[in-house]
Design a protein around this nucleic acid. Structure first.
Lengths: 206, 206
DNA sequence: ACCCGACGTTATCGACGCTAACATGATACG
DNA sequence: CGTATCATGTTAGCGTCGATAACGTCGGGT
């Protein structure tokens, strides 16, 4: 038999899979966890504390699934993989995700800063590979904000914002801007033209 | 004396300026609006209905402030103005904004689709000016999702996501991608080089 | 005159978050 | 071995919440 704290967290997480965080009562949690009501308050202070703990547990799962993604030799592709795993997690755990990223009152799970650090590490790899043209912090804030925005809009207004192409478009746009992967099509034209002219000038002919 | 419905909506909106939507009790609203409790349920069905009505009223204010922005001859600049007014509104009305863009349960204020249409109209103006290189829907969904993401992150995690540069960076990135305003810095270089070479070739000398 | 819809008043219900008071069990230490 | 200690369980209760019932008032329109 797991400890009471674990049973409570487990029960809350289980109930959160179905209902909204507000629709879960402490009595339901106690019944599911087979503990008395005061146990919640001994362990977590109040309901908000419990929910914050659940959110932090969610971040553990969230970050674990990100760390599970192998680091390849293409750090930019890794960024996109991380974005997609983020979006997948959100859609698979809607209530938990909203608890994590739109906390009520002044709860503030600390897992968010771990997510931030993980993202910055991935951006650091891009920088080392010479594939980052924005400051790490700027890029990280922009990427995470955009990713969270896509997910929350998809959860709140599935029609029409749950379309996967919304996530993909924003992913490529924001990551492209940060890494410079994305080229203006005119760049190719101009470069080619310049090269041709240069070739002509230096007598290599066409 | 305004009608009871107006007084209730007004009272709820007033209270929402200070407290979170969940921290507001129907009794507080009734006291502020000088009505009896049953009046809320006669008018709005339940508390959620009232909050949804408040959210829709918030959308009216939100959209009115956007429509107040004059349409200039630069539709891309108009897009950026709209983004900034969106962000400003969110930071000025945090609780109302969260009620509007992260509704609980299955409330879904319909103002969101009006906002979508307004944005699509602005994008249509870009298209007519030949300054849109993404489908209107794709661009609209990406812009609104990113904007909402920036605002919600700033509200939930002001440290460090409330930094105005986050909003500005994402704004220029996403709108730049949609309109093609944003140039790769190498484009200017390549173009200039090509022009110089061309000038040399055609004998105009330096 | 009549009714009917809009609004107000009072009282009440069950569920909720939370707490007090106390009982139990296992473990650590003298 | 005895006992103090701490984690956990049990019961009962407080005050507040969202929501409803029952009833009363007033004004306007056919």
């Amino acid at each position: 038999m797991p400890t009471a704290r674990e049973r409570i967290l487990d029960a809350a997480t289980t109930l959160l899979a179905d209902k909204d965080a507000l629709a879960i009562s402490t009595r339901d949690i106690c019944a599911e966890a087979q503990v008395g009501m005061p146990e919640i308050y001994r362990q977590f202070g109040d309901k908000q504390g419990l929910l914050t703990a659940v959110a932090d547990l969610g971040f553990q799962k969230f970050l674990a699934s990100k760390r599970a993604n192998p680091t390849t030799d293409d750090p930019v592709a890794d960024l996109k993989t991380a974005w997609d795993s983020h979006t997948t997690f959100a859609l698979a755990n809607p209530h938990l995700y909203r608890l994590m990223f739109t906390p009520a009152g002044s709860s503030k799970p600390q897992g968010i800063s771990e997510a931030r650090e993980l993202l910055h590490a991935a951006l650091g790899r891009c920088l080392n590979a010479g594939r980052l043209r924005l400051p790490i912090e700027t890029a990280g804030h922009a990427i995470l904000s955009a990713n969270v925005g896509v997910c929350l809009m998809a959860l709140s207004f599935p029609d029409p914002y749950a379309d996967p192409s919304v996530s993909a478009t924003l992913r490529d746009t924001v990551i492209g801007k940060a890494t410079g992967e994305e080229e203006d099509p005119r760049l190719g034209t101009a470069t080619l033209l310049a090269q041709q002219l240069l070739g002509t000038l230096t007598g290599q002919g066409e």
